[in-house]
């Protein structure tokens, strides 16, 4: 769980310049480069595994065949689906609540001053503490699991969206008021478009953070999901199993990122 805290702390700085560059002609080139880099990783892994020749680092082929076996037995898809469900739920929850609070804090300075201390506290509570407390207070169930993950993510979403809400262009809001635009139209066509880059930044960093925390939550208190499986493999020193599940889940997250978030970002930024 050590991974989560520095990431959360580094987030505000990284997010002040959301990645908004368009990728025009060299998209093909870039894709090629990505592929080569991935391939290089697998080759490196093979070489190191070959040199070590130890059960603690199985070669790629073994891990991939293990992955196929787990997929064939339907165990991997089942646990993966369960974990993914938790990820999606807590992601949606964190984003909705975090965005609402972020907008409110960015808008009302007094509220911001009032809650800023809480926010700093929230940012710095280790994920592990939230998880343990949620299990103690709400019992070892899925509600506690999802709430714990969401609670970990909400403060970072608030920080990012608050920055965006502060940067909202008053001049454009004045246009909306001068023309007496209906509220819904102001929200969807004038206000939210200014927040999209920030919401997207929160979503992208959120996805990678959340799936890691979900695994810990599952390891500590659920009897299914990728985290639970990893724990089982750990008990049995089944390294191939651990790597197979990790790679499978990372692949799913990368696919979501590439198939949903990146195209969405491109669509929302096409005016730049």
């Amino acid at each position: 769980m050590k991974g989560a805290t520095p990431e959360a702390a580094a987030l505000p700085a990284a997010v002040t310049q959301p990645d908004l560059r368009a990728r025009p002609a060299w998209r093909h080139d870039e894709r090629w480069l990505r592929f080569v880099s991935l391939l290089g990783f697998v080759v490196l892994w093979q070489v190191v595994a070959g040199l070590l020749h130890d059960a603690s680092l199985p070669p790629p082929a073994l891990v991939f065949s293990r992955m196929l076996a787990e997929i064939g037995s339907a165990a991997l898809p089942w646990h993966l689906g369960v974990t993914l469900g938790r990820v999606v739920l807590s992601f949606a929850l964190a984003l909705a609540i975090g965005a609402a609070f972020g907008v409110a804090l960015g808008h009302w300075r007094r509220l911001d001053l009032l809650l800023d201390g809480w926010l700093v506290l929230g940012l710095n509570i280790p994920a592990l503490v939230t998880i343990i407390l949620c299990y103690v207070w709400f019992g070892l169930n899925d509600v506690a699991a999802v709430v714990a993950v969401a609670l970990n993510k909400i403060p970072t979403v608030i920080v990012v969206v608050r920055e965006g809400a502060r940067a909202v262009d008053r001049n454009l809001m004045q246009v909306a008021r001068a023309y007496r635009l209906p509220r819904w139209r102001v929200l969807t066509r004038v206000y939210l478009p200014q927040l999209y880059p920030w919401l997207l930044a929160a979503a992208r960093s959120g996805l990678s953070l959340i799936w890691k925390i979900v695994l810990v939550v599952e390891l500590l208190g659920r009897s299914n999901g990728v985290g639970f499986q990893l724990n089982v493999f750990f008990q049995m020193f089944d390294i191939a199993g651990i790597l197979a599940y990790t790679l499978a889940f990372a692949a799913v997250v990368l696919t979501i990122e590439a198939a949903v978030l990146r195209p969405l970002e491109r669509r929302l930024n096409r005016w730049r």
């Binding site: 001049n171 246009v175 001068a178 023309y179 635009l181 139209r185 066509r189 005016w271």
Partner: peptide, 28 residues
């Protein structure tokens, strides 16, 4: 007057950069 009775032009054009030219006009 009331809604839709007042037009306002500012010192800067103040168009919504994420809306097309036509959509900017249709916005109001």
């Amino acid at each position: 007057g009331e809604a839709h009775d007042i037009g306002f032009m500012f010192q800067e054009p103040r168009l919504m950069p994420w809306l097309s030219v036509l959509d900017n006009v249709l916005l109001v």
